[in-house]
């Protein structure tokens, strides 16, 4: 049963990902990206991480994709010119990417990357969110603060950059 769901999610994720990079209309790409993000969130649930799945949906689907869509609309990009939407280095790039897939795939399948399946306590599975919250505010409080500060900087930076220049 779990395998079936995994297959469904994986296939949809890959197809939508291909859609992101191959569709000409940036709006279509953004929608495709959103689909892909949702599938990843579903996979997170398969990996017993409901909190992350929620975060994924909130931030990626709710914020990032919306941001992309806003950018597309603000800039009024429209379709790229016909035949010109791909970069001229595509033969070499394809070779390199395929080589990359082979190399990494070989490493995954024949390497020692496999790890033993752990047996989670029932608590960790049920109270996942609670445990993560406790961890974030105890053991990882310092990185948490750093990251929040980083977010603040990004916020201000984005505003400054996108502000209309004063004449």
């Amino acid at each position: 049963m779990e395998k079936l769901f995994f297959l469904i999610f994986a296939v949809i994720a890959i197809v939508s990902a291909i859609g992101v990079v191959s569709l000409r209309n940036p709006v279509h790409s953004a929608i495709s990206l959103m689909v892909c993000f949702l599938q990843v969130a579903a996979l997170f649930i398969l990996l017993r991480s409901p909190f992350l799945a929620a975060v994924q949906v909130f931030i990626y689907v709710g914020a990032v994709v919306v941001l992309f869509l806003f950018a597309v609309m603000v800039l009024d990009l429209g379709k790229e010119r016909f035949g010109g939407y791909l970069h001229h280095q595509r033969p070499i790039a394809l070779v390199v990417v395929i080589g990359f897939v082979f190399v990494m795939g070989f490493t995954i399948l024949h390497g020692s990357l496999d790890a033993p399946l752990g047996n989670y306590t029932e608590e960790a599975l049920v109270k996942n969110t609670e445990i993560m919250g406790k961890l974030l505010f105890t053991k990882y409080v310092f990185p948490f603060e750093v990251v929040s500060f980083l977010l603040l900087i990004a916020l201000i930076g984005a505003i400054v950059l996108a502000m209309k220049e004063k004449r």
Partner: peptide, 21 residues
């Protein structure tokens, strides 16, 4: 699956001309 998504992403970075893509 992660590798597939990663490779597609890399291909997108290398192939697409539009900066938003």
């Amino acid at each position: 699956l992660s590798l597939a998504l990663f490779s597609i992403g890399v291909a997108g970075v290398l192939l697409r001309r539009s900066i938003i893509i």
